[in-house]
Design a protein around this nucleic acid. Structure first.
Lengths: 225, 225
DNA sequence: CCGCTACTATTCGTATACGATTTCGTACTC
DNA sequence: GAGTACGAAATCGTATACGAATAGTAGCGG
């Protein structure tokens, strides 16, 4: 459940353009490398170029768009190096977000998260990577609902958006990673339920993300030999 | 040694406006709450309002400026809650940046950092909080020079900028914090020199920032009773 | 046939202009 | 005298317009 619904109408045309372009990038309508021509987007949205330009610059600041002076904007791809940077940062901020949220998570939240995780488990047969990824985000979003630090939460969301262009390729291509993920989720829930030491929760949440990164690294090393 | 020198001329007028306004905010020429009128800034810089607007929006994204629709922009202050959020995030990213950098720090870097720290120690008599803070940033900047993850480094710099408006009030008002800081720096250098476990280095770097936060909290709790 | 140069078309960057919204001051009423 | 309504000034938000820089293309020369 993302903020895409707020795409249409949000006061200023700049916001509107921002939401519209962001949605198209995140859901893949504008693939990586796609050229973003200000005048064309402005025409499509029925606004002038100025608000569109502002929207594009904002997306650039979030890392979703690459903008070159006098050249133009393109949807930012994510090469292995960028992937590494982003995953490292995500493991950091997700770990902290989970640890900070843990004391505020109630039994009902746990139940909801566990239900989502069971759905993920069921999803392992007839595997649908996109659905699996959406459920994965829902799972963590529940854990972060009560996160007391909005800055850290914002960083988490930025990381997720940044990875959106990959279209869950890790789950898709690294065998066994999806199943392992479900197991780690359950472990995380047990720790939170048991009111474990925040440091331990942070380590577990961090390792959860790091495991995906390392699975990717191992798999891509395998590919290239 | 900040990037203020790059303020003048940097290709686009938008960049120029960004650097100019940012410099004035960070160095205190525009204090917190100061009203930023687009037309006035544009006139002062000799450009039109469009690039200035773009610059202000960028500063807003970095948390340095608060922008309200149809109202205007003001230099963002930092209330206790924001301070807490920012310090928590900084402890997180500085801890990671230090741990990631540690294996890449050579003996010459250690020597330079130690020299800066000794300058800080000397600075404890005839205490000059602003100079002390600048040295403090120099110290950590040396440690981060080789940081292999630019995303995390960027987050560190954003946090520093966000705190700039405080004008080192923690060092100024919390007794003993400056001296403790110098000691913690030396401990950090020893850990790095000794090629300690990255986790231990991360904990120490994180605790270094957390200690300042807690000193502030304790002190302000004292104030309000 | 290949490489270089000049030209054209596209697109960005910024200035100017105008409508929309808010704020502040003033006058009027109770 | 206090509160409210109205109007003017200030400021933002966006559209339009034009200059600047770049990329693509055609033509020329080797």
């Amino acid at each position: 459940m993302t903020d895409v619904t707020a795409a249409v109408s949000s006061g200023s045309k700049s916001q509107q353009a921002y939401a519209a372009v962001k949605a198209r990038i995140v859901d893949g309508a504008y693939p990586a490398g796609h050229r973003l021509v200000l005048a064309k987007i402005a025409h499509d949205l029925g606004v002038s170029v100025v608000p569109v330009r502002e929207a594009i610059r904002r997306l650039e600041a979030e890392g979703l768009v690459a903008f070159e002076r006098n050249i133009g904007a393109t949807v930012a791809g994510i090469d292995p190096t960028e992937y590494l940077y982003t995953m490292q940062t995500l493991s950091l901020v997700e770990g902290a977000a989970t640890a900070l949220s843990a004391p505020l998570i109630g039994p009902d939240d746990i139940a909801r998260a566990r239900a989502v995780n069971e759905e993920m488990r069921a999803c392992l047969e007839h595997f649908d990577p996109l659905r699996f990824t959406r459920l994965n985000q829902d799972f963590h979003a529940i854990l972060f609902e009560h996160c007391p630090n909005p800055h850290i939460l914002d960083l988490v969301h930025r990381g997720w958006n940044r990875l959106a262009s990959l279209r869950s390729s890790t789950f898709r291509f690294v065998p066994g990673r999806a199943r392992a993920s479900v197991g780690e989720h359950e472990g995380l829930l047990r720790l939170i339920e048991g009111a474990a030491d925040p440091d331990e929760i942070e380590r577990a949440a961090r390792a959860h993300r790091t495991a995906t990164l390392e699975a990717y690294l191992a798999h891509s090393a395998n590919d290239h030999r």
